[in-house]
Simulated assay, not measured.
Amino acid sequence: MTRIDRKFAALRAEGKKAFVSYIMAGDPDLETSLAVMKGLPAAGVDIIELGMPFTDPMADGPTIQLAGQRALDGGQTLQKTLDMVAEFRKGDDTTPVVMMGYYNPIYNRGVDTFLADALAAGIDGLIVVDLPPEEDEELCIPAQKAGINFIRLATPTTDDKRLPKVLQNTSGFVYYVSITGITGAAAAQAAEVGPEVARIKAKTDLPVIVGFGITTPEAAKQIAGVADGCVVGSAIVKQIAEGKSPADVTAFAGTLAAGAHSA
């Protein structure tokens, strides 16, 4: 079992839904983002998604694009992101960390080298949005063999014909993208999300977590209520963009976590 598997087992035992928080590594600088990361578990965050900054983030809206640009401008690299996780692990060996981003930086490093380094740093899962299931031999299957979950995205356009392909080598959880479009573009609606989550859950035993378009504690509660949990990214990243202190950012994340946990 990975840390992700253990976390979901513990949440199920407590009858709670999961709250997942996304932040961009190195935004606005390494010190600040590490301080935020370290504060998230105590605020109630169950799983941390850590963005790998990249120059061409095609799935991301302006908020996360700008976060990635701030991180890159500040000198953030893939190595520094791995180091950040290793530093986080010195004080927290239980909170799952999922790296989310694009394949180019991993490819440049070399898959085998990256997976060994990721495992050593304490990374539990990967979300690589530009590698479709047809490319599973490239990274997904090697990651699973190394003991790292490979988490796939399903979307409103993932029809019943496509869904089994999306699910076939997925592990950890399924990330359901609640809207058609980029991050931060629209509000998720529980009435629309619920039937889609049920459709996915009929085909897999994995938890289904919903992201994109969740910005308030009430929205977190509503979406978590029709899924196994929810992810918030852009709303938290906006707090960082506004120059809020790490304590204020984690306090905000805590209000969202409380919303999800009350579902």
Rank of each mutant, 00 (worst) to 15 (best):
R3E: 04
F8W: 03
A10C: 01
R12D: 13
A13M: 06
G15I: 12
S21G: 06
I23S: 04
G26D: 14
G26A: 13
D27M: 06
L34I: 11
V36K: 01
V36T: 02
K38I: 04
P41F: 02
P41Q: 06
G44K: 10
V45W: 04
D46V: 02
E49W: 06
P53D: 04
F54M: 13
P57T: 05
M58H: 01
I64Q: 03
A67P: 04
Q69V: 08
Q69D: 02
L72K: 10
L82M: 12
E87Y: 05
E87N: 02
R89H: 13
G91W: 03
G91V: 01
G91D: 14
D93W: 00
T95L: 10
P96R: 02
V97I: 15
G101T: 07
I106P: 03
R109S: 06
D112P: 08
D112N: 15
T113I: 12
D117V: 01
L119N: 12
G122L: 09
I127H: 09
I127E: 07
V129K: 04
V129G: 13
E138A: 11
C140D: 13
I151V: 14
A154R: 00
A154Y: 00
T158W: 05
L163T: 08
K165I: 05
S171T: 15
G172L: 09
V174Q: 07
S178L: 08
T180L: 15
T183G: 12
P195V: 14
A198K: 15
K201N: 06
K203H: 11
V208M: 07
I209C: 13
K221V: 03
D228A: 06
S234P: 11
S234L: 08
K238V: 01
Q239T: 09
I240E: 06
E242W: 08
A263Y: 06
